[in-house]
Design a protein around this nucleic acid. Structure first.
Lengths: 228, 228
DNA sequence: CCAAAAGTGTTGAGAGTACACCCATGC
DNA sequence: GCATGGGTGTACTCTCAACACTTTTGG
């Protein structure tokens, strides 16, 4: 097996999700940051953050780095999504992109740096993007919504402690449907991933809500993923 | 974004599963073909079939081609598994491998070509393999066993028509546990992926079993995968 | 008739859903 | 008090596992 002369080029891109209140409805929806391309191909179109893979950098590290470079944020969740490598996905050059998807904290994303060439978009109202990036985002959205282990995912959008209402808000925003508060409480309590604290949130004109914490030990068991 | 000088090299490998009766127990178990490395690194160790990615070949096509080259078989199922790219996974050279997993027909795999440098191994009794290939196979096994849409997968191991007992055998071999025939029948019948034929299999000293066919239309709906 | 697997019926446990209802707070 | 969301109780449906039972063949 000798390495052939004609080679494909390796890139790493990241789909970064955050939860932000919609400007009009106020409901929380999924947003993601895109970067404006400053050169051809697809100059001036919006695209996923990413870049060529340096030979001395791990794949996930490259994804996390481009995430920090474009948003000044650190990922709370980062996972490989898929590798896209269609021959004609980039004009002229054969580019194979290993795509990651990441979740970042909502509140932090509010004050995240946005410049002329970085902008946040509502995930389901994207303009036409460069390359096959619309398809990639669609697939990332599908993966997010059909992911079984919601526990880690929902937690990635929240702070260290949170109320069940906040957690339910996250689930509702991701799943795009209302959840019964009573049943949601029970299913969370029986999932074994939550630790109830003694703290409560006062200040609202109703009964104070108890604060919960995520149980990190819940991760130690099952995940037989590719990275161990 | 200029392409850096130091580049990683792209390879495509495939984990190929077939169902064969174990030599001793006679029970069906998962087997996979490996190729012996004829050069360094890891000369003489067994490894997954694969090779460098030609710039003019699609990823899945490269996976299917190496499958045919090593086994003379055509894949009945082929899906991208994961992309492995740890810096130190190959000594000396930075290699990023896009790994696919495939299923082939059991009976056909029986008479598949095996030479000095190709051999079939029981999937859960592998020797130490080259590179990180043990880890890759482990992950492929996990994906196979936790895959939700068993319909397509189990069908990939069978012929065009099959009895419910044969289909149940496949499920039992993959899941490594016995299934209740009555309940299995009902769950299959209600899944909407089977078409019952009027044919029956005679010759056994018990009631003849009806033959079923897989309903290809069942695939047209849901799959929002990365490839459309 | 007998063994063996095909195929049917029935039951109970558990998960998920809908919804009525009580609790504690700010105003 | 009253509105509001936090939190509890309960009944209903549906899925699934367990298993008794009937059917149809070969020997």
């Amino acid at each position: 097996m000798e390495r052939g002369s004609a080679q494909a080029t390796l890139a790493v891109s990241t789909v970064i999700f955050a939860l932000r209140p919609d400007d009009e409805s106020g409901l929380k929806t999924l947003w993601l940051p895109l970067v404006r391309r400053t050169r051809d191909p697809h100059r001036d179109l919006w695209a996923l953050p990413g870049g060529w893979l340096p030979a001395d950098e791990e794949l996930a590290a490259a994804a996390g780095r481009t995430l920090r470079e474009t948003t000044d944020l650190s990922p709370r969740y980062l996972e490989q999504l898929y590798t896209f490598g269609d021959i004609d996905r980039s004009p002229g050059l054969r580019v194979v992109s290993v795509v990651y998807w990441a979740l970042v904290r909502s509140e932090v994303a509010e004050r995240a740096s946005v410049g002329e060439n970085v902008r946040w978009f509502a995930a389901d109202q994207l303009p036409p993007l460069a390359f096959d990036h619309n398809r990639i985002v669609e697939y990332a959205l599908w993966r997010l919504r059909t992911k079984v282990e919601y526990a880690r995912i929902a937690h990635a959008f929240l702070g260290d402690t949170f109320t069940l209402a906040q957690l339910r808000d996250v689930h509702e925003a991701v799943l795009q449907k209302a959840l019964d508060p009573a049943n949601f409480r029970r299913s969370m309590e029986s999932s074994g991933t939550l630790i109830s604290t003694d703290q409560h949130v006062a200040g609202a004109r109703h009964r104070p809500a108890r604060l919960y914490r995520y149980d990190d030990r819940a991760n130690e068991h099952d995940p037989p993923g590719p990275t161990r």
